[in-house]
């Protein structure tokens, strides 16, 4: 029995995740709102996860899927820390526009 993933063909997964990744990059580059940037980063992360899962199935090797679990767990932790920072920033500055965060200017 053929898996649905195998029917579609690996190249399509690559195209999709590349697209998702680029969406993430442009989101990070063009948006000024920290929350949106954060979401864009998540999209990039998930693009990579998608690719990992796709290749894992393609190669019939479970390692990639294990790896995705790891990266999801790390992403969850990252979100927790990151959002906490953003909340702290919002309390101090009353907005979360990254153009205001220039205190580390050299």
């Amino acid at each position: 029995m053929e898996n649905i993933l195998q029917q579609i063909g690996i190249e399509n997964y690559i195209y999709l995740s590349t697209l998702l990744f680029c969406v993430g990059i442009f989101g990070v580059l063009y948006r000024r709102n920290a929350i949106v940037m954060f979401m864009s980063i998540e999209i990039m992360l998930n693009a990579v996860n998608l690719l990992l899962v796709a290749f894992s199935t393609y190669h019939q090797d479970a390692t990639g899927q294990v790896f995705v679990f790891f990266s999801m767990a790390v992403a969850a932790a990252e979100v927790a820390v990151g959002l906490a920072i953003l909340v702290a920033v919002y309390r101090n500055l009353n907005n979360i526009d990254i153009d205001n965060l220039k205190n580390l200017k050299g």
Binding site: I25, I98, D99, K102, N103, G106
Partner: peptide, 18 residues
């Protein structure tokens, strides 16, 4: 001279990063 590269603008950093 080098420290002026550190503008503090996160957008610029990200752009350079990419």
């Amino acid at each position: 001279e080098g420290k002026t590269l550190q503008t503090g603008s996160i957008g610029f950093y990200l752009f350079a990063f990419v």
